[in-house]
Amino acid sequence: MAEIIYNISAIIALAGMIIALYRMVKGPSIADKAIALDVMTIISISLIVYIAAISQKIIYTDVALVYALISFIGVIAIARYLERGL
């Protein structure tokens, strides 16, 4: 029962990722695409911890830690490029 609910949650998160991809394809400005990248990063952190939990390996969460600490630098770099501060 609980495992089925966990799987349904992961599928809902994957659907959110597909919607964010649609915004990235369509997005009129660069800022829209960067927001879509941000949302996809957050959803992938959730998915990594989900994979670590269902495959019973603690050490996989280290990858999620690296993501949470490093990936926002890319979005900040895009923002600084847009406002000519790079």
Binding site: L21, M24, I30, K33, L37, T41, S71, G74, I78, Y81
Partner: peptide, 12 residues
């Protein structure tokens, strides 16, 4: 820049 963002999604 949009192409660079797409490449970022791929490596993600």
């Amino acid at each position: 820049v949009a192409a660079v963002i797409s490449a970022g999604v791929i490596s993600l």
